[in-house]
């Protein structure tokens, strides 16, 4: 028996179900109102400006007209970041050319280490449709605020790591927030969620 694994999976899926139920309740109650502090702003109301791995400036308005998938992370962490990037690469591969017009974006929460060059080097190991964004700390803070995401530097003896929002945000082509993919979500559910914003 994979007792611990089963327990973890059970707790996670219960948590995910409770979260999604809560999200459904929130959306059904507030669907006609402006988003408050819980969910990301619509993209057309975001005000961030960041730099991609090629050194080009990217602003929220650049994403409008195409559906968008965004997640926060950093390239230094050995476990969840490559795991999430692998999962997203798998989703993109499964979607094939359908995902060519999806803005797929990693926003680094570790601007000290993740320069555009470092991001580009790291992302070259994954699907080439993934854009990496970084910036100054205030720029990253603005982006996190737009997405209602959080991140925090955790210092240890001679190193630091970053706590950060783990979900993957999905937006429709007109910039409306659509859904969140939990980072542990089964690909059988993740890919259909992405397809819904591609339609």
């Amino acid at each position: 028996m994979k007792r611990r694994t089963l327990l973890q999976a059970g707790a996670l899926s219960t948590g995910a179900v409770v979260f999604m139920l809560g999200l459904g309740w929130w959306q059904s109650r507030h669907s006609d109102e402006a988003p408050s502090g819980t969910l990301p702003l619509p993209i057309d109301r975001m005000s961030f400006a960041l730099t991609d791995q090629h050194g080009d400036t990217v602003e929220a308005a650049d994403w409008l007209g195409q559906p968008t998938m965004v997640f926060f992370g950093f390239t230094w962490c050995p476990d969840i970041c490559p795991t999430t990037l692998s999962a997203i690469s798998d989703w993109l591969e499964e979607l094939g050319p359908d995902a060519d017009h999806l803005n797929t974006v990693l926003i680094s929460v570790d601007p000290e280490r993740d320069t555009p060059e470092v991001l580009g080097d790291y992302l070259s190991n994954f699907d080439d449709r993934i854009t990496g964004l970084t910036g100054t700390l205030p720029q990253i803070e603005q982006a996190a605020a737009d997405f209602r995401a959080t991140f925090r530097k955790v210092q240890s003896e001679d190193n630091y790591t970053m706590d950060h929002t783990a979900g993957v945000f999905l937006f429709n082509a007109d910039g409306r927030f659509a859904n969140i993919i939990d980072h542990h979500e089964d690909p059988r559910y993740a890919v259909p969620k992405i397809r819904r914003v591609l339609e």
């Binding site: 994979k2 611990r4 694994t5 795991t83 959080t150 783990a166």
Partner: peptide
């Protein structure tokens, strides 16, 4: 790696319990 209220963090683990008659995986996430 633990995800609490949607926030991923990576605390140091003092040990990984390996209970009797159980399989434990060190695995992604």
């Amino acid at each position: 790696t633990v995800v609490t209220d949607g926030i991923a963090s990576m605390p140091h683990a003092m040990e990984v319990p390996v209970p009797a008659d159980a399989t434990v995986a060190l695995e992604p996430g």
